[in-house]
Design a protein around this nucleic acid. Structure first.
Length: 329
DNA sequence: ACAGTCCCTTCCTC
DNA sequence: AGAGGAAGGGACT
């Protein structure tokens, strides 16, 4: 019998809607009012934000184990309010921090994190979500469903499944484009040069070396390497600089040598990371994530739900495109 | 309905 | 070293 249990954490320490949907993880589905479901360590987890707490569903036999999984995943030993207080010394941060409290870095499974972010290049959150789901459906293991939702949940595929022959061409058929090759090559490379445990073992390697190792993988450049460093390998000081962060850095901060910079060279990339580490300290990557999320279209000031009219227009366009395609055959 | 532009990048070439 | 283009496909305007 599944019942709700308390994680005993206030909204200022953990806000689910932003933390789960800001583009760190792509596996959480909205399954109710203030409720999200996803897969952690091959089990389905359902979470709910209540007024003064976060609740999780579990049967009596697994309450303790589930709570431990969640404490680890949300890194609850990190005192976020204390960090915000420190980061508030930066005026740009302070402007956002009230509205964007409780945004934490998740401690994700390195394997899922790596492959999700290989998919992320030149891509949007919604399409990355589709791709990660497709990979899980095709090469992962079926786990089950949640109450009141017929959507099946799958574990993320293992390395050896992704290293199988034919994965690349199947991924291409699934619409992964040039990322298909990256995924297949990376899975094979890791198994040939290391083993299944290798990725997780990078948690015990210092940031610079960890980053360097990751960048040997196909489809992994500085940005993706930093995402994996930050979001699953415990490198709290890692700053992934994408075009978005690049814009924020130029717009809101005076970083020497950056004002005149035209493009994102490795040198500029490093300058931005070093600057944020300078002003935010050890957990600079966490601070960066708050600033980043506050600027995201879906959460930020600019956010607005497309009008019903516009959404219907989008739908009818899709239909037309589909019938045109059919007509060609 | 259409067309130009932009997307949470990497890799390759010049 | 640094700039620029190619590589899916979809969404936005």
């Amino acid at each position: 019998m599944n019942t709700w249990h308390s994680l005993d954490v206030p909204r200022t320490e953990l806000r689910l809607n932003t933390t789960l949907k800001c583009g760190q993880s792509f596996r959480w589905r909205t399954t109710g009012e203030n409720e999200w479901s996803g897969v952690l360590r091959d089990r389905i987890i359902t979470l709910q934000q209540s007024d003064h707490d976060v609740l999780f569903k579990a049967d009596e036999g697994s309450v303790g184990a589930t709570r431990e999984i969640l404490k680890d995943y949300f890194q609850l030993e990190v005192n976020l309010e204390a960090l915000y207080a420190k980061w508030n010394q930066d005026q740009n941060f302070k402007k956002k921090s009230g509205e964007f409290a409780g945004i934490r870095i998740l401690r994700q499974d390195p394997l899922e994190n790596l492959f999700a972010f290989i998919c992320s290049s030149n891509n949007s959150i919604s399409r990355i979500t589709m791709m990660v789901n497709k990979m899980s459906e095709r090469w992962g293991t079926y786990i089950g469903t949640v109450e009141g939702d017929s959507q099946p949940y799958y574990s993320f595929p293992t390395l050896s499944r992704l290293a199988e022959d034919g994965v690349e061409s199947e991924l291409r058929n699934l619409g992964f484009g040039y990322r298909a090759k990256y995924i297949a090559q990376t899975a094979k490379y890791i198994l040939q040069n290391h083993d299944e445990k290798w990725l997780e073992s990078l948690r015990y390697v210092e940031y610079a070396q960890c980053r360097e190792e990751l960048m040997k993988l196909s489809g992994v450049g500085p940005k993706v390497a930093d995402c994996v460093c930050l979001m699953s390998l415990d490198k709290h000081e890692s700053i992934p600089v994408d075009t978005h962060v690049w814009q924020i850095a130029k717009r809101d901060y005076k970083i020497s040598g950056l004002a005149a910079a035209k493009s994102m060279t490795p040198k500029n990339y490093l300058a931005i990371g070093d600057f944020f580490r300078e002003i935010f300290g050890d957990y600079a990557g966490w601070a960066h994530s708050v600033i980043f999320t506050a600027d995201l279209r879906q959460f930020g000031e600019k956010s607005r739900q497309p009008s019903l009219k516009r959404r219907l227009l989008g739908l009818s366009r899709k239909k037309q495109a589909l019938s045109r395609k059919r007509g060609l055959r």
